[in-house]
Amino acid sequence: MNQDVIITCAINGAADTAERNKHVPVTPEQIANSAIEAWNAGAAIAHIHVRDPETTQGSRRVELYAEVCERLRASSCDIVINLTAGMGGDLYIGPDENPTAFTQDTDLVGAHERLVHIEQLKPEICTLDCGSLNFGDSNLVYVSTPEMLRIGAARIQELGVTVELEIFDTGNLWFALQMMKEGLLDDNAMFQLCQGIPWGTPPNFALLKGMVDMLPANTSWTAFALGRNQLPWVAQSALLGGHVRVGLEDNLYLGKGVLATNGQLVERSVNIIENMGARILNPTEAREKLGLRGIQ
C-alpha cells in the first residue's frame, strides 16, 4: 500500500457535462477557482482542460489555457498545474455508406499542434494519450498513432515538461513502455491508468493489478475509474501502491442523485486515504516525490 499519496483533481474534462452538473467549471475564472477549491481540500495536482465559454464545449484555444494559468500563478495557491495535451484527436467517421465523409465535429490535428499551449505555457506536467480508441457508441474514434506519439513524446521531452502517460488499454501501456525503451520518456514519466471509459479497459480490479504488474519498478502511477467507481478506485489505487485521481472530469456525483463539486470529491478521497492510515502529500512534497521542476 502507498503510505504517501498524491491527489490529482481532474477539474472539468472536455465531455458535454456542463449542463448535467452546474458545478462543472467552464470559464477560465471558474476553472481556476475550482482548482483552488480542490487545493484547499487537499489536492496537490490540478489536471485541466479548457472550454469555450460560449458553447461550454472543449477547446484548444491557447489564450484560455493562458488565463487559467495566470490566475493560478497569481494566487496564493501552489497547486501543480497539469494541462491536457489530448485535445485534437477526435475523428468522427461518416455514415456507413460514406465513412470518409468526416463530420463537422471532427477535430484532428498533428502531434505538434496538440502541444502549442504546452510550448507557450510550460506547465509542470502535461498528458500524452497513448493510443487510439473507439470512444463511446457512435462513430467517434480518438486518434493517437504510434508516429504521433513518438513525435509528441520527443517534443515534450525537449520542453522539459514532465509527461503523464494516459493509458486507456493494455496496448497503450505496451506502447508507452516501448517509448521508454526508445529513450523518448524521462525517468520521472508518470502513468495514469484510466478505467471505465467505453471502450477501453473496464473498471475491473484484476485488470488494474495486471497493468500495475507491467509497470517498471519505482514508477509513479495513478489509477482512476469513471462514475460510481471513482471513489472506490481511490482505495483500490492506494492499496496497490499508486496515487489517486478524482474530479468532475470523471464523475459528477458525490452519491446517488447528489451532484458534487471538485472540493467535495477531494475531501471524500482525503477521508478514504487517511482512514486507511496513509498520508496526503501537499504540492511541495508532490513536486519532490515526482521530480518536478517547480513553478516557473
Score class of each variant (00 low, 15 high):
Ser269Asp: 03
Glu288Lys: 14
Pro198Tyr: 14
Ala111Asn: 00
Leu165Asp: 08
Cys130Thr: 14
Asp129Trp: 01
Glu113Phe: 13
Ala260Asp: 00
Glu113Ser: 14
Ile272Glu: 06
Arg61Lys: 15
Tyr92Leu: 12
Lys289Cys: 09
Ala206Glu: 14
Gly94Ala: 12
Gly160Arg: 00
Ser138Val: 04
Asn262Lys: 09
Asp169Ala: 11
Ala223Thr: 05
Asn134Val: 11
Val258His: 14
Gly86Arg: 13
Met214Thr: 03
Arg20Cys: 12
Ile11Leu: 05
Asn188Gln: 15
Leu231Ala: 10
Val5Met: 01
Phe168Trp: 12
Leu91Tyr: 00
Pro146Ser: 06
Asp137Arg: 09
Ala286Asp: 03
Thr27Phe: 08
Val143Asp: 09
Ala217Ile: 08
Cys77Phe: 08
Thr162Glu: 03
Phe224Leu: 13
Leu108Lys: 01
Ala15Ser: 14
Trp39Gln: 06
Leu259Pro: 04
Pro25Asp: 02
Leu281Lys: 01
Asp105Leu: 13
Lys122Trp: 00
Ser144Trp: 02
Leu115Asn: 08
Glu249Pro: 07
Glu274Trp: 04
Phe175Gly: 00
Ala85Phe: 04
Ser75Gly: 03
Gln30His: 06
Glu249Ala: 04
Tyr142Ile: 13
Phe175Ile: 00
Asn204Leu: 14
Leu193Val: 07
Gly294Leu: 11
Gly294Phe: 09
Leu226Asn: 06
Leu140Glu: 04
Tyr92Cys: 06
Leu193Glu: 05
Asp187Phe: 06
Ile36Ala: 07
Gly136Leu: 12
Ser269Met: 02
His23Met: 07
Asn21Asp: 02
Ala43Trp: 02
Ile31Gly: 00
Leu254Val: 06
Ile118Phe: 05
Asp213Met: 11
Trp199Ala: 11
Gly255Trp: 11
Asp137Gly: 10
Leu165Thr: 10
Thr162Gln: 10
Thr100Gly: 04
Leu64His: 09
Ala223Gly: 10
Gln178Val: 05
Gly42Ile: 07
